[in-house]
Amino acid sequence: MELILAVVSGTLFAASFYLLLRRNLLRFVIGIIILGNAVNLLIFTMGRLTREVPPVIPYGQKVIEGAYANPLPQALILTAIVISFGLLAFTLVLVYRNYTVSRTIDADRLTASEPEQDVDLHTQKKRLPA
């Protein structure tokens, strides 16, 4: 089971890296979504998979006897899912809002904030005043 999940997680990482390297911002956002899921699966697998009882202490006892499923990775993943959901919503709105202003989702054409001539090598005022 660990092996299958490790392969799935690795495949998701590979797919998301491919998408993150695209110039299309929408693909980039989809890459971010897949990347988040890949990490969540990784944390889940690293927390050891046990097909055992849920971690509920029986009535009248202080501890659980025997093996039980580890609840902590699930708590971590839940937190990570909520956070990535919020960030994803913001990112989608940001990309859309940016599209309405600049009319492009091509990362290479996002140059409004860059200086027109960004290096300062050929100006008259280059020399320090004496």
Binding site: F90, L94, S113
Partner: peptide, 10 residues
């Protein structure tokens, strides 16, 4: 700002 934010956020 929007454009700087796209790069920063990503």
């Amino acid at each position: 700002q929007l454009e700087g934010a796209v790069k920063y956020v990503g």
